[in-house]
Design a protein around this nucleic acid. Sequence first.
RNA 1: GCGCCUGUAGCUCAGUGGAUAGAGCGUCUGCCUCCGGAGCAGAAGGUCGGGGGUUCGAGUCCCUCCAGGCGCACCA
Length: 561
Amino acid sequence: MTPDELSQALSTALASAVADGALALPADAVPASVHVERPRQREHGDWATNVALQLAKKAGTSPRALAEELAGRLGATPGIQAVHVAGPGFLNITLDAAAAGELARTIVETGAAYGRGDSEAGKRVNLEFVSANPTGPIHIGGVRWAAVGDSLARVLEASGAEVAREYYFNDHGAQIDRFARSLLARARGAAAPEDGYGGQYISEIADAVIADALAAGEPDPRELPDVEAQEVFRARGVDRMFTEIKASLHDFGVDFDVYFHEDSLHESGAVDRAVARLRDAGRMFEKDGATWLRTTEFGDDKDRVVLKSDGEAAYIAGDIAYYLDKRERGFDEVIIMLGADHHGYVGRMMAVCAAFGDTPGTNLQLLIGQMVNLVKDGQPVRMSKRAGTVVTLEDLVDAVGVDAARYSLARSSVDSTIDLDLDLLTRATNENPVYYVQYAHSRTCAVDRNAADRAVSRQDGFDPSLLDHATEAALLGRLTEFPRIVAQAAELREPHRVARYLEALAGDYHTWYQQKDRRVLPYPDEAVQDVHRTRLWLNDAVRQVLANGLALLGVTAPERM
RNA sequence: GCGCCUGUAGCUCAGUGGAUAGAGCGUCUGCCUCCGGAGCAGAAGGUCGGGGGUUCGAGUCCCUCCAGGCGCACCA
């Protein structure tokens, strides 16, 4: 019996009580589905509901009386072993072992599809994340979005959404000019320009640009006049950086469907078109020689300049055009993950969304994530290129590997600032919970290998009623939750819930495994019996769910460690 | 000054109104006579930042104060 079926049974019990006149509840107060949850305390059964507490007042009765009424009607339902009324009016439900144990077979037979659902079905989602500027390698802050964003995309896809992963490549404007000037200065052995970029990578990129140009049969860009030289360093430098970023993300297991170039919006006239459209809609006004969007009309705290008094487009003009472009490509939900240092954009971007006649929060969703801090010896370390405390994506992967990096970044809520310990990165990595989960998975695989040797197979003799131990009930209950966890992670845009779930599941598995009288394999002097075959189903169900969950996080599920 | 986020065990963090607030790491005590000890069982460790309020019930919702982070451009 699944939680959905149980919820349905409760709903039916309520409806019949109302129909009988046993319950004086208005028909519209009967919930279509009753919320059931896993109680924290094992003694409280497999499932619990507070529905009696919530409806008692409306029904003009006491919570306990209502609960008793429901318990009586529910007791006869097949698959339910016991229903108890507890505390102020909780309904605690225990399923019979066979009904619960059936799940092991269901999961194994469903395979990789177990956990998938349709809660986001029919949605076309554009998910933008990372979008780091091409003026340097991706540092630790961007890596967090890579890990979380890609997992979110996977979770949304598992819930039925069609997802495009998109990277906004910021290759237009003053930052890029500074980048180009920095490359040129370095190439000519001059000091970095004021507010330019000074990292070691600048030298490497500058050298690469020269090599690329020469290889292409072009003159040495250092010898060109300043303006032309800077243009060569800009174009080739950005291209180099772009290639590097793409490659390191790929090595991290993150591939984008679209790398969108900001420059293209300006070149194609998309910016002009978007601005014209807002102007026609009466959302723009002129003041002080500039053209403004009246974002205050939609809740922003101040109006925004879109076209500066010198005629140039302000940065937001690109964002406006980009948003419109995504919508015109047919995405009904445009999601953008941003760092906390960009949270000031929320008001203006939501206003842009509304100005186009769209619904903020639906057509446009901005997810703000907090920053990653570096910590050494318990003290915060400012990221500084000169001090060598910039941790890039590649540094992180070199230190701990892709699995540990992705997992540790994806297992926390993005609302929390993360402290990353520099010493921990360079020391032993076994403290990462990813190993706890992966170990559980490889254990299930070890059991499978040994089972094959002992000729224990899932061929015949599956008897779910044999899964009657407390540790088995706990494990089955946990396995039941997986589809809900995935749906919830998608709905709330919180993929870290998957990681936390896997840790709990791994814990339940280890506990079960450790029970000496619950071995999958018979002892040497013992014959293979149905209990062994049946437990193998459970073992394999756990393996499947661990594998499915790790896949949602972009982490491997090793068969051996 | 205004806005967003955070404050939970020694540390890093879970906990979208439920019952006795959890995990990992760290500390202490046990467990390899058989499926992998990267594991398990147990112990110690908490005014859930403070104070009000809503509710049958608040770590969770509301108000307020305190502390920390991040923002408040005709920069990108």
